[in-house]
Write a protein that binds this DNA or RNA. Structure first.
Length: 117
DNA sequence: CAGGTGACCTTAA
DNA sequence: GTTAAGGCCACCT
């Protein structure tokens, strides 16, 4: 999906989230950074809520900077996110994920080629 | 316009 | 390992 430099902030966020590989996770803040929106992590959560279901965006791979699922524990969304991550091979304990094991390490070259110039 | 609220982040203790 | 404060920004009362 190639985009021009006029793509909306939300579209750029979706684009980055779609690049997170199965079995990996990435934080709201870092997604915002790669989308060219430093300091706007909250916009990422908004974008995930607003994403059309048909996009099949891997929203579950986005967690907070402390390596935890951001939904409140024991809530339905929390449980759902944890279950999906586990089916992808991610170990989750009490909503915590070890970033040293599962954080996405984006490839700069690939990234540059897929972003607007 | 003035708060309050979030699927947030960094820093400092 | 925590938590608290301050910052942040889009939205809603």
């Amino acid at each position: 999906m190639q985009m021009n430099s006029e793509s909306s902030p939300m579209a750029r966020i979706w684009h980055i989230v779609a690049m997170i590989p199965k079995g990996k996770v990435y934080s709201y803040g870092k997604v915002a950074d790669l989308a060219g929106l430093p300091g706007r992590a909250r916009l990422v959560s908004k974008a995930l809520r607003a994403a059309p279901a048909e996009m099949d965006l891997p929203w579950h791979r986005v967690i907070n900077s402390q390596g935890k699922i951001s939904f409140a524990e024991h809530t339905q969304p929390f449980i759902e996110q944890m279950q999906i991550l586990r089916t992808e091979g991610v170990t989750v304990n009490r909503g915590r994920i070890k970033l040293s094991d599962y954080e996405w390490q984006p490839d700069i070259a690939t990234l540059v080629l897929s972003l607007p110039y």
